[in-house]
């Protein structure tokens, strides 16, 4: 990736005026990648489901009748009913919003923390780097899910709280380390490039150097890590909810559904299988998207 513009120029068809940027080059690759399109479509469907669940089901996920307990698929209920007589399809569709919300917000939080830590550690180096890197080591010394279990229980505000804020904060505050490390190492390698020295000699200040020159050229691996983290955080939310320290109360979530249905799996497999399928498909979509984006931004890894 030392000189993407040169490669882009060499590959650009004659007649197209200006050379493609790194992002333009990546987009050129992505456009022809079937996996990218498949995962994008899946991600879009999931996002639509999160934003407008009523497009997919008109049933009320909270309208449960015990007389429907464990009934098979019938009428509007595509996936049948669970042990409390709730419509499994409606609950699964409405559960999407919480998973996506927690996934996106926690990744955003982790991204902001990771960006600041990585950029500062990589740019300033020396003592700043040593202190920040030890900070990263300390958070990394706590196994992710174990830390999340302790923190999430501590952060949630007791009765009536659905746990969305607590889980988002927990995941964001624990997950940023990988992003910070990746950011740091790419900033370190970008910092020593000639164009940074040139900009510095032209009198650019540290902030301008960091955000105008170094950041755009070192952000690609960071974005890839964030895409992969999104999938991981969605899975982590489900795991926390399954263990009983994630979303709770009235909140509908795939992890809660799986936990509820597991005991009755032998009687009715549907309530267990469908949220599992949705969860796995969502995580898979984000991982495939991350893989495709990484391949596009870093052709060396192929």
């Amino acid at each position: 990736m030392s000189d993407p513009n040169l490669i882009a120029m060499a590959e650009a068809p004659a007649g197209s005026g200006r050379p493609r940027s790194l992002a333009g080059d990546a987009w050129h690759d992505l456009r022809r990648n079937k996996i990218f399109w498949a995962s994008s479509v899946l991600v879009l469907v999931v996002l639509l489901m999160a934003l407008a669940p009523s497009l997919f089901t008109s049933a009320d996920p909270a309208a449960c009748a015990l007389s429907n307990k464990h009934k098979g698929p019938a009428g509007g209920a595509l996936f049948g009913y669970d042990f409390q007589g709730c419509d499994v399809f409606a609950r699964t569709v409405h559960g999407t919003r919480n998973s996506i919300e927690v996934g996106f917000l926690s990744t955003l939080l982790a991204g902001v923390i990771g960006l600041c830590f990585g950029l500062a550690a990589g740019y300033y180096g020396g003592a700043v780097d040593a202190v920040l890197s030890r900070g990263i080591d300390i958070v990394l010394g706590i196994p992710f899910l174990l830390g999340a279990v302790v923190f999430s229980g501590r952060l949630s505000a007791g009765e009536g709280d659905d746990g969305v804020t607590a889980v988002t904060l927990t995941l964001g505050l624990l997950a940023w380390t990988s992003a910070a490390r990746v950011m740091r190492s790419s900033v370190v390698s970008a910092k020593s490039q000639d164009y940074v020295a040139a900009a510095r000699m032209l009198g650019a200040g540290p902030l301008r150097l960091m955000f105008r020159h170094i950041l755009p050229n070192s952000i690609a691996p960071f974005i890839v890590v964030l895409t992969l983290m999104l999938g991981a955080n969605i899975a982590a939310e489900a795991t926390l909810s399954y263990l009983g320290v994630g979303l709770k109360g009235e909140a509908i979530s795939w992890g809660v559904q799986i936990a509820d249905a597991q005991g009755q799996a032998r009687v009715a497999a549907g309530p267990l299988v469908w949220p599992s399928v949705f969860l796995a498909a969502t995580v898979l979509a984000f991982i495939m998207l991350g893989d495709a984006v990484r391949d596009a931004f870093d052709p060396k890894l192929r």
Binding site: G231, A235, A238, T239, Y242, G255, I258, A261, Q262, A265, R266, A269, L272, V273, S276, L279, A280, A281, V283, L284, I287, M288, D291
Partner: peptide, 18 residues
Amino acid sequence: TLLLLAMPIVVLAPVAQL
């Protein structure tokens, strides 16, 4: 391996048990 990576343990364990 991609499929395995996408399977959270909360999905895999109960479904495998089932």
